[in-house]
Every structure is written in C-alpha cells, then in structure tokens.
Design a protein around this nucleic acid. Structure first.
Lengths: 147, 147
DNA sequence: TTTAAATGATACCAATTAAGTATCAGTTAG
DNA sequence: CTAACTGATACTTAATTGGTATCATTTAAA
C-alpha cells in the first residue's frame, strides 16, 4: 500500500522550492536540479499545477514558475487529489449505487471512517507548514531518514 | 488514491463467509457465489491465505476451506499487508538510507505519523468485529451504501 | 534582429501492477 | 469409478506509473 506516488511527491517538493523563493520566477531547470526531479517529468507536472491554479508561469528567456497561492492554503490533500485522484475506497461511494451485499457495506463503513481521518490529516499538512518544518530542521546539520 | 484493492476486499469478504460458518468447510464455489467473487481469482487468493496460516483446507470431494484462527485475531491490517504489501510511503523507510535532500525528509516525517494512525485503525478492524457489525446491520432490512 | 533560454502542448515508450482466466495434476467422499 | 474438490502454475489483458522526446511559441538580452 503506497500512500504517495512520485508525482505527488515531486509536486510537493517543487512547490517547496517555489514557496521558498516568493515573488521570483524559478525555471523548471532550476527546480529539477534543486529537487533532483527528472526535468521533462517535472515540466508536465508543473503544467498540471498551472491548470489547477496553484502556480503561474512566465514564458520566454528568464521565465519560469511562481507560486500563485498562499503556501498555507496549499494542502498536501489537494495535491494527492490532483495527482492520485480522490481518496477513495471503492466505486460504491461515488456511483451511489446500492450495495450488492451487506458484507461489503459493513467494511466500507469502517473504511470511510478511516478515510476521513486520513483526509483530515493531509488537509493539515500544507506547503507552508512543511516549509516551516524545513527551516526548523535546517538548524540541525543533517538528519537520517528513519522512523 | 485507493486504499483497498480488489484482492484485499475479496479476502475480507471470503473470510467473513468462513467466519460465519465456524467448524465447517466451505468450498471455493460456495464462497464465490455467496460473495460474488470471480471463482478462479478467489481460489488463488485462498491459497495465499493458506500459505499465511489464516485458513486451512481439505482436499477432495466435499472439501473446502475453514478459518484457522480466531476471527478477532485477524485484522484487516494483516490482510492489507498480505495483499498490498506493508503500509509505506517510500523506499526511504525500509532501505534506511540517508535522505538526498531535507525536503523529502520533512514530508516523510509527517506521512509516517499518518501511516501509524492508519495502521492503528486497520489493526482495530478484525473479521470478528466486522462479523458483529454485520449481524447488527442484519436487523435493518437493507441499507444504502452512501457516505 | 538574431539567438538562446524558456514555457506550452503532445505524443510516445517501457515496466509494472491489477484483475481475471485457464489448465492439469492430485485427492477424496460416496 | 467418478464427480467434486484443492494445489500449483502459467497465461492474458488492461490500466497505471514513471519517464522521454519533440516541436512550436514566447521573450530577454546581446
């Protein structure tokens, strides 16, 4: 069970780059280098972010991308929805069809409860909050990625 | 973002069938009909459950499958791990390698927190608890699967 | 005015995974 | 003996994921 796919992961990191250079345009090249994201992949991803109104771009030489919204208003939850679709368990929820059997429903009910919890948690994590975490972590020299 | 795949979903339902016929062997055919699970798919799935020590089987005519363990001792969390791998966010956690950049780590840290919450929730949901929910729901005629 | 550095928009590709099907061999109750 | 089972495994098909490549357009600046 994988929670985040690469695209979401890259998007978060790209947005962190943009958020830490407010008011400036960063080129895809720079972001790619900074965050070690495959260049062409990143470019497609940035287009999607534009289409969803999260960033703006400037074309031409010395162009690039800039965060459009307040970093605290961009939740990881929204990014997950953009790149991995809505947090869901089954078709049942969306098609609003009757359950074929009750067993399925009982399980769904429990899962939906958990989904709400997860959504809530991801709603609380924003680019802004991550950026602050990042700055706080910056004071410690280097950290191991465990636990 | 999909939390449960079909295999896990089917497994839960198959186990619910088995749990509601304690001490009896149910054939794959019967379970498949009862839960509307594709027969051959179910059979492979049941083999996996055997290999993981959750059910036992009897071969030959009038053979079938039986739950091996206490229904309350079989958590959905375990089924997710069997059929979808451990609840994880990235390779980082398991390979215990150093983070290439701090941004990744900061996000990871938050995600791991959420993962623990999710794991805890799925640990609480067991075949036994679902069966009781099912019996309780059985008193109401038929329910719609919404929200 | 030319040019180099950008983005915009697509099209393509390879690997993996998910879901489902099919088959054959061995077992056993009746 | 045979029909109804499980055990094991191979195959298929479609979708998804992660990544690459290309061409057109825009623009700052030499």
């Amino acid at each position: 069970m994988k929670v985040l796919n690469k695209k979401t992961d890259y998007a978060v990191r790209a947005l962190l780059s943009l958020a830490s250079s407010p008011g400036r345009y960063l080129s895809a090249k720079v972001i790619a280098a900074e965050q070690e994201i495959p260049y062409q992949f990143l470019r497609r991803l940035l287009q999607e972010l534009i289409h969803h109104g999260l960033v703006v771009s400037r074309e031409g030489a010395s162009g690039g991308f800039m965060l459009k919204r307040d970093p605290d208003g961009v939740a990881v939850r929204e990014l997950i929805e953009i790149f991995q679709g809505p947090v869901q368990v089954s078709e049942c929820l969306f098609r609003k069809q009757l359950c074929k059997n009750r067993a399925r429903c009982v399980l769904r009910h429990q899962i939906l409860r958990i989904e709400r919890v997860v959504q809530n948690e991801f709603e609380k994590i924003t680019i802004g909050s991550l950026l602050r975490d990042l700055e706080a972590a910056g004071k410690v020299p280097q950290q191991e990625c465990i636990e």
